[in-house]
Design a protein around this nucleic acid. Structure first.
Lengths: 133, 133
DNA sequence: CCATCTTAGTTCCCTTTGGATACCAGTATC
DNA sequence: GATACTGGTATCCAAAGGGAACTAAGATGG
């Protein structure tokens, strides 16, 4: 059973352990993508919106706010006109990127092993990837 | 840009790439916990329900079905009485456990670094971990 | 002076998913 | 006949996800 420096036991399988809450935060499609998008340096809201193909502004805002609340990213407002807002990784966020990057990478590396039937139709035929980019 | 053996480009950031769908499946609290719970060998529905503290039977069923559809776990029914159903990892599922285990572990190892305010009240005070187990 | 463009969101509404609780089927046992 | 065990459904409600339109603030430009 994993124990931290302060001697308390932590377990993601325990619903009342803070770990569970953090796992819920990180084991999330948009969180994993947003943190990964910030690995190469700060990005603006619009850039993230473009990078995270398919995200709605509402969900992106909610995701970024949640990551900020949990100390994984910083939100910096430059009061220029037009408004300029930059999101960047905190040290904690940068560290969290490691396991998330491995997960994203594993998916890409092993996608061919998944049964065809499991992939929804829309993602097979009309995919950018399938058009031979 | 990552490329697979068949030469096609895959990118989790592309909403229409099958990768995105798979990331959505794996970057999920219950999936990450369920796969991890099967690492030490097959488990029955009831055992998973106990292990995955706080999961409702409906959600557990849905999670297991989804993992089964995507070829990550096998569902074996032993027509004994009372009914006996076992869930086990497929080779693909076993491989997927690696990055997920790293993620779960990272959370446990770094939980103390998260700001206190970010942890919901219920998880701090009345936690099993806090009671000095 | 008013319309337009930009960025970074918010608001609304609807659908999907998550979650809690109750209940069911099949059979063996008491 | 009542009870218990396993592995789920059924039902109901709340929360989150998602699409589209709209807002704010100020520069720009006719």
């Amino acid at each position: 059973m994993p124990t931290t420096s302060c001697g308390r036991t932590h377990d993601v399988y325990d619903a009342s352990c803070p770990c569970r809450h953090m796992l819920d935060l990180l084991a999330n499609k948009w969180s994993a993508l947003a943190l990964g998008a910030l690995e190469d340096g700060p990005r603006r809201f619009g850039a993230l919106r473009t990078k995270l193909d398919g995200v709605s502004p509402k969900v992106l805002t909610a995701t970024l706010r949640r990551l900020e609340e949990h100390g994984l990213i910083d939100r910096t407002v430059y009061p220029a006109v037009p408004l300029h807002v930059e999101y960047s990784l905190t040290p904690l966020g940068r560290d969290a990127c490691e396991p998330l990057a491995l997960l994203r990478r594993w998916v890409v590396d092993n996608i061919e092993r998944f049964p065809e039937a499991a992939v929804p139709a829309g993602a097979r035929a009309t995919s950018r990837a399938a058009s031979g980019a």
